[in-house]
C-alpha cells in the first residue's frame, strides 16, 4: 500500500487528499482518527499524526476538540484548484519532453489526444 521511496507521512497526506477530492470524505465530515489510520496502513501512530497535522496546517482538515478531525469547508475545491495549477508541470511538460524524444511533433500529439479522448468516451 505504502512504499518506502517517499516519506510515509507524505504518502498518507496525499492519500487523504485524494480521498477528499474523490468525495469519500465530504466537507464537514469526520476523517478516520490517527489510530485508525495507523492500524489500517500498519504505520506508526506518530507518522499518521504527522500526515494529519500537515493537512491541518494546509487548511484541508480542522480539529474539533474532543471529537476528531474534520474536512474543512471548500477543501475539495481548494485541492482541485491546486491540482489544476500543477497539471502543466506534472503532466504536460513531461509528455512534451517524451514526445520530442520520440519525434512526435505538436500537431501529431494533438491528433493523438483527440483520438484518445474519443475512444476513452466510448469505454
Amino acid at each position: 500500500m505504502l512504499s518506502n521511496d517517499i516519506p510515509i507521512f507524505q504518502q498518507l497526506a496525499a492519500q487523504i487528499k485524494d480521498d477528499i477530492v474523490a468525495g469519500t470524505y465530504a466537507d464537514e465530515t469526520a476523517v478516520p482518527s490517527t489510530n485508525e489510520y495507523a492500524v489500517f496502513y500498519r504505520i506508526n501512530p506518530a507518522t499518521a499524526g504527522k500526515a494529519v497535522n500537515l493537512l491541518v496546517e494546509q487548511g484541508i482538515l480542522y480539529k474539533k476538540r474532543g471529537v476528531g478531525m474534520f474536512v474543512s469547508p471548500g477543501a475539495a475545491e481548494l485541492l482541485l484548484a491546486q491540482r489544476r495549477d500543477r497539471f502543466t508541470t506534472e503532466f504536460l511538460t513531461p509528455m512534451l519532453r517524451e514526445a520530442q524524444t520520440l519525434g512526435i511533433g505538436p500537431s501529431d500529439l494533438a491528433a493523438m489526444i483527440d483520438r484518445e479522448a474519443v475512444s476513452d468516451e466510448r469505454h
Binding site: 489510530n35 495507523a38 492500524v39 500498519r42 504505520i43 501512530p45
Partner: peptide, 13 residues
Amino acid sequence: RALFYSVLLRDLA
C-alpha cells in the same frame, strides 16, 4: 506477522 502488527498498533492506541 500481519496479525502481530495489527494487534500491536490497535492495542497501543
